Simulated scan of single mutants.
Amino acid sequence: MYPFRHIKFWLLVLCCWGSCALILQAQAVFVTPYPQEADIRVFVTNNQFQADLVVFKVPFITDITQPGYWYFAEYEFDAQRKICFVKNVYEAHLIIYYTKHRVEAGWRRPDKSYLFR
């Protein structure tokens, strides 16, 4: 009986660790109007090939399954990062392009992925 409890415990730990890893990889963001409060300043472009990241908006945090899927959190504590949208590209840490297709979402410049670690 004891080995089964031990196995159940480690399975529970692995499941929790896996879900935490997904949340850490997830890109749940909270939008703040103040650049000094933001972790990342973001510029939105109309040109997909200029973007560092192609973003697909998802309606639920559970829909975040890969980089490039963004969930816009209503509350700051639900988000992984605070972002602020800027009007000039030279002020931005990250340039994004919004897509309507899930398959297009992802990093175009993976060297910028450190912003979400």
Rank of each mutant, 00 (worst) to 15 (best):
C15R: 05
P59C: 08
F49L: 05
C84T: 07
P3I: 14
P3H: 01
F43L: 06
Y90V: 02
V58M: 04
F56Y: 10
Y90P: 04
P59G: 14
W17M: 01
I61L: 02
H93E: 13
D39E: 02
P35C: 04
Q80P: 00
N47V: 07
E37T: 00
A28M: 06
I40P: 05
Q80N: 02
I96S: 05
F49E: 05
W17D: 01
C84Q: 04
L11N: 04
V58I: 07
F72G: 07
A21M: 03
V89R: 14
V13E: 02
H101V: 14
Q36F: 12
R41M: 05
P59I: 14
D78C: 09
D39Q: 02
A26K: 00
I95H: 08
Q36N: 15
L11H: 05
R102V: 15
C15V: 10
Y90E: 09
C16E: 10
E91L: 13
T32F: 09
F43D: 00
P35N: 03
G18P: 03
F30Y: 04
N88E: 15
A92G: 04
H93M: 14
C15K: 03
F77D: 14
Y98P: 03
Y97A: 03
N88G: 04
K100E: 11
L94T: 03
Y34L: 15
C84K: 11
T99S: 13
P3L: 00
